[in-house]
């Protein structure tokens, strides 16, 4: 049970890291290219800590590479939000911002987990996430409240991504039990704080929440959008073509 919860945390970091890594060498400017690659590497590092821990609990005794690279699509438990494609830089920073606000609150809560290893991983990761949040928030403000074109692109990104945000606060049955045990964070309770921060940023960025609300979810149950399969095909290729490959 704890195993599945850890995978859920790890998959979010891994899939978002993979998405960001696609921009390595393709960032809008050299400085942003490096910044985004740094964030990607941070997230890969965080996912490794989690996969290593999950590996210790796995009944099938899979190691971190096998857990990260060799599961079929339906076994990934990441949020739909983090698998959404890099349509343009506005989508990249907005996806990052919506997730960073959540990731920050979630890791903050996890630092008090009764599971000592999870608490330690959260404490270590939190420093990095604080910076990610600062970076993505500043870009949302800068572009949202920027030129007419940058504003339009940010609003498009918000219109396209907002529907996925609600899934972050959906509690699975496993989480419900682990919350009672004092191990997991109650994501439902993070929502008001998240919303307050996000609303204030979007307001400052002169962006409007789209009508229609939060209606897409499924990632946490393994039901993904059409984008994850393509991402996995690329990410898993090396381990599948050359099993146990290392370098």
């Amino acid at each position: 049970m704890l195993f599945e919860y850890i995978l859920q945390l790890a998959d979010n970091q891994l899939i978002l890291a993979q998405r960001l890594s696609e921009l390595c060498g393709h960032g809008p400017a050299l400085e942003q290219d490096i910044a985004i690659t740094n964030i990607s590497l941070d997230l890969i590092g965080q996912s490794r800590l989690l996969f290593q821990y999950a590996g210790k609990l796995d009944e099938q005794h899979r190691n971190e590479d096998q857990l990260a690279f060799l599961r079929p699509e339906k076994e990934y438990r990441n949020l739909l939000l983090v698998e959404q494609p890099n349509r343009d830089f506005a989508h990249v920073v907005l996806r990052q911002y919506l997730f960073d606000e959540f990731n920050f609150l979630n890791y903050s809560g996890l630092t008090n987990s009764k599971d000592e290893e999870l608490a330690a991983i959260a404490t270590k990761s939190l420093m990095e996430v604080k910076y990610h949040l600062r970076f993505s928030k500043n870009w949302v403000l800068r572009l949202g409240d920027g030129t007419a074109i940058s504003h339009r692109k940010m609003q498009d990104a918000l219109n396209n991504l907002w529907m996925y945000a609600g899934e972050m606060f959906e509690k699975t049955a496993i989480e419900r039990d682990l919350v009672k045990a004092g191990i997991a964070v109650d994501v439902e309770q993070l929502m008001p704080t998240w919303k307050e921060s996000v609303m204030s940023t979007l307001k400052e960025a002169t962006l409007n929440i789209p009508e229609g609300g939060w209606y897409q979810s499924g990632g946490k149950k393994g039901v993904h959008s059409e984008h994850l399969g393509h991402l996995l095909a690329e990410m898993q290729f090396m381990q599948r073509a050359y099993p146990n490959l290392t370098w």
Binding site: A29, L30, E31, Q32, I34, A35, N38, Y131, R134, F135, N138, R142
Partner: peptide
């Protein structure tokens, strides 16, 4: 290169 001081600081960090 950076558009403003805040971005320059973050870019420098990265």
């Amino acid at each position: 290169h950076a558009a403003d001081a805040e971005m320059a600081l973050e870019n420098a960090r990265d």
